[in-house]
Computed example of a mutant assay.
Amino acid sequence: MISIVGILVIFAMVFGGYVLAGGKMGIILKAMPFEIMMIGGAAIGAFLVANEGSEAKHALGDLSKVFKGPKWKSEDFKDLLCLLYEIIRLSRQNPVAVEEHIENPESSQIFTKYSKILTDKEAIGLICDTMRSASLNYDDPHQVEEIMDKRMEQSLHHSLHSSHALQSVADGLPALGIVAAVLGVIKTMASIDQPPEVLGKMIGGALVGTFLGVFLAYGLVGPFATKVQNVVEQDSKFYNVIREVLIANLHSHATNVCIEVGRQNTPGLCRPSYSDLETALKSLKNA
């Protein structure tokens, strides 16, 4: 919602200020369709050239993050800690029994209680693969920790591709605006024999290209890229909580201590209180 408000403020302040200063929208509106065709079309073409099909599709899909915000909310972090608590407790009570849960999480009575987490392949893969690796090599927890770090680094790098791709488009838009403006000047020079009032409108139309290139770059596409990056980095903290809890488990800390480590590493706005989490864990114990 805040992103929509921001976009409305941008348009209202820029074009509202222009009109209040005595500017005429007629010239802009007349030239805008052709300028957008040249600038926007060239930007889309360059975007497709610079990215593979799957990468372009992924970047376009990530535009929804601008309006939806982070995927993981406060309740999701509490559910994650409860899920990890159940898995770690079972692995210590019965290492054999936990295998059926980590091998088939879709049919697991533990994982299916947390449907939103179950739909996230990265979160489930991180939990199950780490628990499986730990069961194979408990004598060297640092090796499992290193594997987790490399996996999370690679995943974050892939997730940030969308923001980098959008930022590249934003960086190129001012130059594409100049290209459109130069073409407008060429058109104007071809009509140099026209009266001054006609030439003035043509020059004004040409300058719309420069305006649109800069406006789209710094008013829309650039902020979109920044927002996507911020959302991706915030969502990555969800996986960092998984990392911290499972690493604490690798070092054989008590189950409650592992969960508290995860709670302390949860972002402040999403961190469940100690009492709320304790209540949730007690209900799991009673169940």
Rank of each mutant, 00 (worst) to 15 (best):
K237C: 09
I247C: 01
V228K: 04
Y218H: 09
M202I: 11
P195H: 06
A254P: 00
V198A: 14
T266W: 02
A248H: 07
H251L: 10
C258Y: 11
V232Q: 10
M189R: 02
M189N: 02
G209T: 06
I259L: 06
A206T: 03
Y218G: 02
L199C: 06
Q194I: 05
S236D: 13
N240M: 10
F224Q: 12
G222Q: 07
N240L: 12
P195S: 07
F224D: 13
T210A: 12
F215D: 02
I192K: 00
E197A: 12
S252Q: 15
A190L: 10
T210H: 07
Y239R: 04
I242V: 08
V257S: 03
G268K: 11
I192D: 01
K237E: 14
G213N: 11
G262H: 09
H253V: 08
S236A: 10
Q194C: 05
L207K: 12
E260W: 06
G268F: 09
G219L: 03
I247D: 00
F224V: 13
A190S: 12
K201F: 14
G200W: 05
V257D: 04
P267F: 13
V232L: 08
S252G: 11
D235Q: 01
A225M: 09
P267T: 12
N256L: 15
C258W: 09
D235I: 04
V257T: 08
M189E: 02
L220E: 03
Q234S: 10
L216H: 06
A254M: 02
R271G: 11
Q229N: 12
G262D: 11
V245Y: 07
E260A: 10
G204Y: 04
E197I: 14
I242P: 00
V228M: 04
I192N: 01
I259R: 03
A206S: 01
F215S: 00
M189G: 01
N265D: 14
L212E: 01
L212Y: 00
V208A: 11
K237N: 11
N249M: 11
R271H: 10
Q264G: 04
K201I: 12
E260P: 06
G213P: 08
F215I: 01
N265C: 14
N240E: 15
T226A: 14
K227Q: 09
F224T: 13
R263F: 04
R243H: 14
G205K: 01
L246C: 05
G204C: 05
A248S: 13
L207T: 10
P195N: 05
K237S: 11
Q194R: 08
E233W: 08
V198D: 13
V245H: 09
V214Q: 09
